[in-house]
Amino acid sequence: MSTDRPVVVAVPEEAYAAGLADAAHVEPVVWDPSHRHEREAEFRLVVPPYMGPPPRVERFRDLPALEVVQLLSAGYETVLDRIPPGVTLCNGAGIHDASTAELALTLTLASERDLATHLLAQSRSSWAGPRMWRALADKRVLVVGYGRIGHAIVSRLLPFEVEVTVVATRARGGDDLVDAVHGIDELPVLARTADVLILIVPLTDSTRGLIDADVLARLPDDALVVNVARGPIVDTDALVAECSSGRLRAALDVTDPEPLPADHPLWSTRGVIITPHIGGATSAMAPRARALVRRQVEALRDGRPLENVVKPATSLSR
């Protein structure tokens, strides 16, 4: 560890600076990318703000000492082309596991227990019933995407007495929660028996449009599609058609397009619940984010490997 060259770190808020205040040989600076700062030439690690668009590529190129960009989001597809050669990009994997898993379960339960009907009845001072209502128990749940958040979702699903099947890019052995992990090539067959389909895959060229009209058509009648991943993973027009007919239901934290225009048919499609991309934005995020930033700063300072590297630095000149 160098004692004469502190690691100058650009952070988005005072809370992150306070979390680094007692770290040896580290100097945190609160930085707004839309404004110039007198210490920019010294920034070695930058943490862009969580909310709002990422900084322009020109802003990163203006930082001659920059070595690492640490995102506070798990998704990074909108930032990849903004990272100059020679700079390592790390995402916020792990920060949002609890929050996003909570929302996936919340959306699933809200739809399965028909909460929208009861809230509407409450607004009318009306007692809905009597009738038999859906339950989550005994349902067959297919989770597409079995990384850290997928694992967190499954750990919360299992106590509800469901049958869970998980899908990842490639088939592999099971773990502490599931007996086996199925490959994405098995999705068309597995969809035929899924009462609930939960999506938590990253948006890539291979996952864009993954849940298309064919996959949706394979789902059983009255199946529920829960998307806490990215909107373009689902064919929106095909989903609207299936839900409008009453054959499928959906609970969506993400949409395509996003934000959803006021006149978009999804708003009024029967059986659809929509939340405005709030999966990770909870009180659980902040302490996990500050802890990750501190670990990354200390790793950079000490010359240790970084966590969550999604785009390693290249040797090309900046």
Score class of each variant (00 low, 15 high):
residue 1 M to E: 12
residue 1 M to Q: 07
residue 2 S to K: 03
residue 5 R to P: 12
residue 5 R to W: 10
residue 6 P to T: 00
residue 6 P to C: 01
residue 8 V to N: 04
residue 9 V to A: 05
residue 10 A to C: 05
residue 11 V to I: 04
residue 13 E to C: 01
residue 18 A to V: 13
residue 18 A to N: 08
residue 19 G to M: 01
residue 20 L to N: 07
residue 21 A to G: 02
residue 24 A to I: 10
residue 29 V to A: 06
residue 39 R to G: 04
residue 39 R to S: 07
residue 39 R to I: 03
residue 42 E to R: 11
residue 48 P to W: 04
residue 49 P to S: 10
residue 51 M to E: 14
residue 61 R to P: 12
residue 62 D to M: 08
residue 66 L to T: 13
residue 67 E to D: 08
residue 69 V to A: 11
residue 71 L to H: 06
residue 74 A to S: 15
residue 77 E to S: 15
residue 78 T to N: 12
residue 80 L to G: 11
residue 81 D to R: 09
residue 82 R to N: 11
residue 91 N to P: 01
residue 93 A to Q: 10
residue 94 G to M: 03
residue 95 I to D: 14
residue 96 H to T: 03
residue 98 A to S: 02
residue 101 A to V: 02
residue 101 A to E: 06
residue 103 L to T: 05
residue 104 A to Q: 02
residue 105 L to G: 03
residue 107 L to P: 03
residue 109 L to E: 05
residue 110 A to Y: 00
residue 110 A to C: 02
residue 111 S to R: 14
residue 114 D to V: 04
residue 115 L to W: 04
residue 116 A to Q: 08
residue 117 T to L: 11
residue 120 L to D: 15
residue 122 Q to S: 08
residue 122 Q to Y: 02
residue 126 S to K: 07
residue 129 G to T: 14
residue 130 P to D: 07
residue 132 M to L: 15
residue 133 W to Q: 15
residue 135 A to G: 10
residue 147 G to E: 06
residue 148 R to Y: 09
residue 152 A to W: 00
residue 153 I to A: 14
residue 154 V to N: 06
residue 156 R to W: 10
residue 164 V to L: 06
residue 166 V to W: 01
residue 171 A to K: 00
residue 173 G to K: 01
residue 173 G to N: 14
residue 179 D to G: 15
residue 183 G to Y: 00
residue 187 L to N: 12
residue 188 P to I: 02
residue 192 R to N: 10
residue 195 D to G: 12
residue 200 I to V: 14
residue 203 L to D: 12
residue 204 T to Q: 05
residue 205 D to A: 15
residue 208 R to P: 06
residue 209 G to A: 13
residue 219 L to A: 11
residue 220 P to A: 10
residue 222 D to L: 09
residue 225 V to F: 00
residue 227 N to K: 06
residue 231 G to R: 13
residue 232 P to M: 10
residue 239 L to N: 06
residue 244 S to G: 15
residue 248 L to S: 08
residue 248 L to P: 11
residue 248 L to R: 14
residue 249 R to L: 04
residue 250 A to R: 04
residue 252 L to R: 00
residue 252 L to I: 01
residue 254 V to I: 02
residue 259 P to V: 08
residue 268 S to T: 14
residue 270 R to S: 14
residue 270 R to G: 14
residue 273 I to G: 03
residue 274 I to C: 01
residue 275 T to M: 01
residue 276 P to C: 04
residue 281 A to D: 13
residue 281 A to R: 04
residue 285 M to D: 07
residue 288 R to K: 08
residue 290 R to V: 13
residue 293 V to G: 02
residue 295 R to S: 04
residue 300 L to V: 11
residue 307 E to G: 01
residue 308 N to S: 03
residue 312 P to W: 11
residue 313 A to I: 13
residue 314 T to R: 09
